[in-house]
Structure formats: structure tokens, C-alpha cells
Design a protein around this nucleic acid. Sequence first.
DNA 1: GCTTGATCTGAACAGGTGTTCAGATAATCA
DNA 2: TGATTATCTGAACACCTGTTCAGATCAAGC
Lengths: 194, 194
Amino acid sequence: MARTAGSHSDITGPRVREAALALFAQHGYAAVSMRRIAQEVGVQAGALYNYTPDKQSLLFDLMQGHMDELLKARSQEPVCNSALAQLEAFSRFHIRFHLERPLAVFISYMELRNLTPDNFAVIEDLRRRYEGELEAILRDGRDMGAFHVADTKITTLAIIAMLNGVNTWYRSEGRLSLPEVEAIYWDMVRKAVT
Amino acid sequence: MARTAGSHSDITGPRVREAALALFAQHGYAAVSMRRIAQEVGVQAGALYNYTPDKQSLLFDLMQGHMDELLKARSQEPVCNSALAQLEAFSRFHIRFHLERPLAVFISYMELRNLTPDNFAVIEDLRRRYEGELEAILRDGRDMGAFHVADTKITTLAIIAMLNGVNTWYRSEGRLSLPEVEAIYWDMVRKAVT
DNA sequence: GCTTGATCTGAACAGGTGTTCAGATAATCA
DNA sequence: TGATTATCTGAACACCTGTTCAGATCAAGC
């Protein structure tokens, strides 16, 4: 069994995923060819098939990996007591997590229609699971009188849509720091539901 | 000069745009071929070039047409007195207008990266112009003490992102009517800025 | 040093891409 | 009815697509 430790696959594999992530985010899944990805990695197109069964899996694995990371990171956050503190923690976590991986976030929202139906169902389930966490916070908070929301489902989607908007304009070298952005958005979220 | 009134171009022209709109929205610009559009219209691919110089113009014209309609419709809305009434009018108008043309809205957000740089600049300018109207409302309202917003630019983007979220879930046959949706979102917007 | 086998190349496959254009078609006007 | 011409066809152009695979390459284990 030769060429296991230190073999090129440990290097090429991640590079394939990185190149696909960057190119899919910039030009879109359909507009990026396997040859273009291979060129970015510095390899011939055929070599990519040592690391992915096909182009579709490349996209799906990126999206599934992102959603898994999202749910895992969320589950490792400390739990808060009050409904308000829980909502604040969620809002700040969401902004922070999403600003740390803008390319994966972009792909996960833009390339849903390029997934096969089966793959789409998997990603959609993971997304619903994440949204469910926010909705549970809103529902509990409303039942305890901490929030005043007309419809927890819609409010969930409205808050997530608003928070996702950060990714469209935030630049780390911009005039606002991450804590400042968090504070501004949390202020809007808090007022919107109380 | 034969074949002017009642010629097929009066019918085929709009059908080309409609087919392109629907297909671009469903599969994405890069994933839709001119032959696929032609098939939808019931014509050969070459005939499309009587109605558009190229595929890129087809996309650009759809997006520019949408943004022009948006700005025109907005300019024809009655002006309100108070800052709060202006913000309410803007919020309700935005939801109504966008829910009336979900495909054009979808394309105008998803296909920006498939525009040539020149075309992108045009669309981006129109978008900024629209966002500027909301920001002006927020700025005036804040200066007059009606709103409490930390940053009018960010609040503008946050509100638009939130309102745009309606298009991801609203269905006309769903459990909520358009007025109900407008009321729920306006309630959240109002509370977020006051 | 020799064998092993993971890794990669380069060519090939069948089919699709946007676009052009000579020529067929047919609706309109004189 | 006949001439005009907008509209459309069908084939062609040069190139790109995802994917496969026989064979070359070369680091690691014996």
C-alpha cells in the first residue's frame, strides 16, 4: 500500500473543493466547467474524478458540508435563560457564522435550483431544521409573553432574510466592525419582535 | 412595406421574453440554451435573433425592464405626509409590487453575476436609485425624530432584505392574504425603526 | 532495487453551445 | 393577382460540455 501518508490526494482533494467553492460562487454552478476547476487546481479535468463522482456531487457536498457545519456550530453554542437572550444569541451567532464563510453561504442560497431533486430535499431538510431553532425561540418567547409576533413562521423567515442581508454588503475592511454590525442588527431584531 | 400590422413579431417577440423569463428563473441563465427557449416559443433557435441581438441582451432587457417598471410604479405612488406614513407606503408598495412579478424579481437578484460588467453597472445603478428612496425616508424620519435608526444605509438594506424574503414563501393560494402579509411585515418594519 | 498501486495525463466520446446566413414561406399592399 | 419583404427554417460553424479510461508517472514498502 504505497502513497498513503503525504500523498497528493491529501492536498488535491481540499484544493478541488476550494476551487469549486470559489468558482461556483463567482460564476455560478452551470457556468463553471470541470476543466475550469481543474485549471484552478493545476491538474487535468480527468483527475477531478478521483475526488468526486461527478460535478453534481461536488456542489452537493459543498452545500451539505456547509449546512452540517452550521447546525453543528449552532448546537455547540451555550444556551441562554431568557427568551430575549436566546434570540440575541441566535442573531449574533447567525451573523458571525455567515460572515465567516460568505462563499459557502452564497452558494447555499443561489445554487439550490441546480441540485437534483433528491439532493435538494436533503439540503432543504437541513435548512428547515435550522430555521426551526429560531422559530422555537420565537414561539416560546411569545407563549411566555416576551415577544409580540403575529406569526412565528413568517417572523422566522423575515428575521433570517434580514440577517442574511449582511452578507451582501459587509466587508471586513469596511467602516463597521463585526461587533458593531451585530449590535445594529440585534437592535432591529429585538425591536421588531417586542 | 408588407406585414407590419398583425405580423407574427407582435406575438413572437413577447413570447420570447416570456419564455426566457420563465426558463431563466427556473433553471438559471447559464443552464438555459437558446434552443430551449426557441422550443418553448415553438420556433427554431435562429428565429430568436430577430428579437434579440444575443442571449446576454435577453437577460439584460428583462432585468432593465423590471427595474424601470419598479421605479416608474414607485414614482406614481401618492406621496404621504408623515415619515411613518411614507415608510408604510413604501413597505406595502414593495411587497405588492414584488409579489406581482416573482419571476422578474427572482432573476433580478439571482442573475446579476451573469451580466457583463457594463450591463451590471446599469442595473446596479437602478437598484441603488430605488434603495435611495427608502434611505431618504429613513433619513428624513430620523432627522425629524420619528425614527431611531443607528445607520440609515444599513437599515435600508436590512428592511429591503426582509421584505424581499416574502417572495421565497408567499403563495397566492396560501393561508395568508396579501393584505395580511402586508400588515405583518409593516408591523415588523415599523417596530424595528421606531 | 523492485514491485505495488495511488495519482495523474491526454486523448477520446457523444452531444450541446451561441450565433450566422442562404433560402423557403407566407402575409400584406398595390 | 403579383410583387414585396418580414419572418422563419435548417444547416453549418467553431468550440465547449461532463465523463471515461488506457497508459504514464513516481513515491512508498519490502
